[in-house]
Structure formats: structure tokens, C-alpha cells
């Protein structure tokens, strides 16, 4: 079974979580916990790097929204980077691209944020 692997690093613009593997009902709790463990400052952005995501179901999508709430609660922003095509299509269908900003990669997410800030 393909497991979920999450590594978090702090950058000048805020925490970047690199997410690899399958994000589903069984593993969504891990990402939720990893996101809760980050402490973004107001004005920073939490970036979820989904480049290594091989599967994402509705439970996984729900964790993106939880991440958004976590970031917004402290006045930080949220961004998704390197979203796989299938997940991008799902995000589009469920309308989440309206509330979660999507960038082609981590670099452009952080650069865009610096410009915003």
C-alpha cells in the first residue's frame, strides 16, 4: 500500500509542506496533524506542495480546507503548488479554486506571495 509521506520545511515566506503518496480517508489525519503543527506568522503563506501526490479523495480535499482555516486563523495565506492534473480537475469541479490559490510550483507560489506582501 502506498503510504503518505509529508516533510515540512520553514522558509522565509512560511512553512512549505511537501506531500507525497496517497491522500485518502485513512491518511488524511496525518496531513491534518502536520498542518496543525505549523506555526505560520501573520502575512506568511502556507504552501502545500502536491507534486508527489498520487491519489487524493474527498477526505484529502477536506484537509486542504482545514489547512486554509488554520492559515487564515492567524492571518496567513494558503497556496497549493504543483497540483496533479486529476486533483486540479476535482478542485475545479468542487469550486475550491475560488478559495485556494493554485500555482504551478513552490517557487512561483512563494514569489507571488512576496509580490503580494
Amino acid at each position: 500500500m502506498n503510504q503518505l509521506d509529508i516533510s515540512t520545511r520553514d522558509t522565509a515566506t512560511g512553512p512549505v509542506l511537501e506531500i507525497r503518496g496517497e491522500l485518502d480517508y485513512d491518511s488524511a489525519g496525518e496531513l491534518r496533524a502536520a498542518v496543525s503543527a505549523t506555526e505560520p506568522a501573520a502575512g506568511q503563506v502556507v504552501v502545500l506542495d502536491l507534486g508527489g501526490l498520487t491519489f487524493c479523495d474527498s477526505s484529502g480535499i477536506a484537509t486542504f480546507i482545514a489547512a486554509r482555516s488554520h492559515a487564515l486563523a492567524v492571518g496567513a495565506g494558503i497556496a497549493l503548488a504543483s497540483v496533479p492534473a486529476h486533483t486540479a480537475r476535482v478542485l475545479d469541479v468542487i469550486g475550491l479554486t475560488q478559495v485556494l490559490t493554485v500555482y504551478p510550483d513552490v517557487e512561483s507560489a512563494t514569489v507571488a506571495h512576496r509580490h503580494d506582501a
Partner: peptide, 9 residues
Amino acid sequence: PGGLLVGVL
């Protein structure tokens, strides 16, 4: 188009 997941916002 634009219909958002229910309960988010």
C-alpha cells in the same frame, strides 16, 4: 460553473 463545495465558506 462556480458552484462551491457545500459548507466551506
